[in-house]
Simulated assay, not measured.
Amino acid sequence: MELMVMHMEEPCFDFLRTKETLGYHVYPTCRNTSGVLGFSVTVETQATKFNSELVELKIEEFLVSYGEKLGALTEEAFNTQVTALVKLKECEDTHLGEEVDRNWAEVVTQQYVFDRLNKEGFVREH
């Protein structure tokens, strides 16, 4: 899921923000709702500029176009994305705020897996 969302970030911003100009804050995120994994696409827009039906329609258009892009992804490009995500998870925290954010996300999502990186096989040296 994280791999897909990471791969989706740039095309999501390009389609919904740059081309459709729906709002400045446009991003996909991973979700874990009561143990059910999923993702969401968030578009923060002005209610006076675009209604929710139009925004939803444009998000659906993006998802269709992204599905086509994902279907055309080469094995080499996929492996590059995997390597990038692994390297990101293996990086040490550059400041205490990163560790705090990671642990706070565990609290907010009520998952409390504070050693998630270790369990995923990404042990960080301190």
Rank of each mutant, 00 (worst) to 15 (best):
G97F: 09
L16Q: 03
R116W: 11
S40N: 09
W104R: 01
S34F: 08
G67R: 03
G35I: 07
A84P: 01
D14G: 11
I59R: 05
K58I: 02
E99M: 10
C12G: 13
E92Y: 04
E60Q: 15
F39C: 14
E10C: 05
E60R: 15
K89V: 03
K119R: 15
S65H: 04
T18M: 11
S34A: 14
G67W: 00
R102N: 04
H126Y: 12
A77C: 06
T48N: 12
A105E: 03
L54M: 10
H25A: 13
Q111M: 11
R17G: 02
L88S: 15
L88Q: 12
L85Y: 09
Q110V: 03
E125C: 14
V86C: 13
S52N: 09
H25M: 07
N51I: 00
G71P: 02
F78I: 01
G35S: 05
A72T: 06
Y24F: 07
T21H: 13
S52E: 01
D101N: 11
F15G: 11
S65A: 15
D101H: 07
V5M: 06
S34Q: 11
N79H: 08
F62Y: 04
E98Y: 10
K119I: 04
E76A: 15
F114L: 11
A72K: 11
T83W: 00
F78K: 05
V86T: 08
E56R: 14
R102Q: 05
F114M: 12
F122V: 04
E92N: 14
L117Q: 10
V113Y: 12
F114N: 14
G23F: 05
V107C: 10
S52V: 01
Y66L: 08
F15H: 14
H25Y: 08
L37E: 01
V36H: 10
V36R: 14
F39T: 15
T94Y: 10
L3E: 01
Q110W: 01
F62L: 02
N79Y: 07
V86S: 13
S65R: 06
K119Q: 15
Q81H: 12
T74Q: 03
P28Y: 09
Y112R: 14
L3R: 01
L70C: 00
G23T: 01
M8A: 06
E20Y: 04
T42F: 00
G35M: 00
T109R: 15
E75H: 09
K19C: 02
N103H: 07
M6C: 05
V108L: 12
E53G: 06
